[in-house]
């Protein structure tokens, strides 16, 4: 290793970190110890690195960011003894201020959407089975985010355009209607022109579900599914049903029996 090569390697070295035990840097550091000029360069380089690192470390998140994240993405489970009636009154999808603003926009734009958008103009050829297959593929094996996610800016635009499929609470099983913590996530997706809303839901026991919501007017030949139809794909169970002009597909990791139980419980109540 010559001096130039050692300098190149040492550019990526940060003292006091796990780099100290990384063999990649060992030979270059050894060379620096024997070469005063190289060592002087390394010390000056480290001083400059410290300056930049300190500048970045002084970036502080805005007040309330952590709380907003926690409010938006998760909720504590309601206490078991909490009055059921009180929980049922507070079906709140979001408590984040900007999302509440968007929800208000949605209400205003809904009427516009119903009159302006003509779903049948789209040439989508989606069956329930194809939708379930696509939903299934959303959960990638390595945990990497699916490419269909859109950013907040686009999400806002879609809310403002009223192009967001929103579930009706009374179309859902009772266990998914209760409490403040019914939903803690929303993703707007576009599957080759088919607008799909995916809501992340919790039941009262903390079990998590993904609910895909699709306007049936975009679809061809969708049967009326007054009772759920079940399907299992690679360890994920799906229940499909319709309500009004909406197709719902509920997904949960695990056997179909769990979803059946959810709907059975719903009907028993």
């Amino acid at each position: 290793m010559n001096k130039q090569e050692a300098q190149f390697i040492l550019e990526s070295y940060r003292p006091g970190t796990e780099d100290d035990s990384d063999p990649t840097f060992k030979e270059a550091l050894e060379l620096a110890r024997k070469d005063p000029e190289l060592m002087a360069w390394l010390k000056e380089s480290e001083a400059f690195d410290t300056l930049i690192s300190q500048g970045l470390q002084s970036i502080t998140p805005p007040a309330g960011l952590k709380e907003t994240i926690l409010q938006g993405a998760t909720r504590e489970r309601p206490p078991i003894e909490a009055p059921v009636e009180r929980q049922e009154k507070k079906v709140i999808w979001w408590q984040s201020p900007w999302l509440m603003t968007m929800a208000a926009s949605l209400a205003v734009m809904l009427a516009v959407t119903l009159t302006v958008i003509r779903p049948q103009e789209l040439e989508a050829d989606w069956s329930v089975a194809k939708i379930i297959d696509t939903a299934s593929s959303q959960t990638s094996a390595d945990g990497a985010p699916a490419q269909e996610y859109i950013n907040f800016k686009d999400l806002r635009a879609r809310f403002e355009a009223g192009d967001i499929p929103v579930p009706q609470t009374d179309h859902l099983p009772k266990d998914l209607q209760k409490g403040d913590n019914t939903s803690y996530g929303y993703t707007a997706m576009d599957w080759d022109g088919l607008p799909v809303g995916r809501w992340t839901l919790h039941d009262n026991r903390g079990e998590m579900y993904q609910l895909y919501v699709i306007d049936t007017r975009y679809l061809k030949d969708v049967p009326t599914l007054s009772t759920p139809v079940y399907r299992e794909i690679q360890g994920y169970a799906f229940a499909s049903w319709t309500g009004g002009n909406t197709l719902y597909i509920l997904e949960q990791q695990g056997p179909i029996a769990n979803l059946r139980e959810l709907f059975k419980y719903h009907h028993d109540k």
Binding site: G72, A73, T139, G143, A144, P145
Partner: peptide, 8 residues
């Protein structure tokens, strides 16, 4: 973190 809640 929303993605993490979904995919974590």
């Amino acid at each position: 973190f929303f993605v993490y809640a979904r995919k974590g």
